[in-house]
């Protein structure tokens, strides 16, 4: 898990700021779902179009699968959000987040001729904010910062010390 960075301060803190903002958003998405006992992904999945529609249909037609997906989604979002915000296993969290958010994008992509009954945030053509967030998470995974700003710094140091002191 050890990685070295040679960013400038400005580069580091810009990336940290991005990590915090996305962490904040994803953590709140998870907590909001947790706080609302009636939340379910049913409505979202029913709208599924394109390559994910088969999977979404399978999920919605099996109540136990649906509740499992809801549970995993809520806690997955919380875990990813905490990871990004506090910088714990932040690289893993960023990859997991990128994949999860990208599946959201694939479930309801803003393609030409594809229409959704759900309200859409802004005007989107192929690219939307979900896709952005997914790719931003890829950037965060590729340019990690949690070894500098984040609990990973401590974890990494403790691990290094156990492996034979500062080198």
């Amino acid at each position: 898990m050890k990685y070295e960075t040679n960013y400038t301060k400005l580069q580091t803190y810009s990336l940290v700021l991005l990590r915090w903002l996305i962490g904040w958003h994803i953590l709140y998405e998870g907590i909001a779902k947790l706080l609302n006992p009636d939340w379910s992904s049913l409505g979202f999945l029913q709208q599924a179009q394109g390559i994910m529609s088969g999977f979404a249909g399978w999920v919605t037609s099996h109540p136990t699968v649906l509740s499992t997906v809801d549970f995993l989604n809520t806690w997955g979002l919380i875990a990813i959000g905490v990871g990004l915000l506090l910088g714990i296993c932040a690289r893993t969290a960023a990859w997991a987040g990128a994949i999860l958010v990208f599946t959201y994008y694939l479930t309801c992509p803003p393609l030409i001729g594809v229409e959704y009954a759900r309200p859409v945030d802004g005007n989107n053509l192929i690219v939307d904010k979900t896709l952005f967030e997914s790719i931003a998470l890829v950037v965060l995974a590729v340019f990690p910062t949690s070894a500098v700003v984040g609990l990973d710094a401590i974890i990494q140091r403790l691990r290094t010390r156990r492996n034979g002191g500062v080198k």
């Binding site: 904040w24 709140y28 915000l85 506090l86 910088g87 984040g150 401590i154």
Partner: peptide, 30 residues
């Protein structure tokens, strides 16, 4: 090394107040 440790710890924990702020805002919103 000690000096770096202090700074490292401070930087490592920099996300905590942000998380705290989120918690506070969630409480306010609720």
């Amino acid at each position: 090394a000690e000096g770096m440790k202090r700074r490292t710890v401070l930087k490592a924990l920099a996300g905590v107040p942000v998380a705290g702020l989120l918690g506070f805002e969630i409480l306010r919103k609720t």
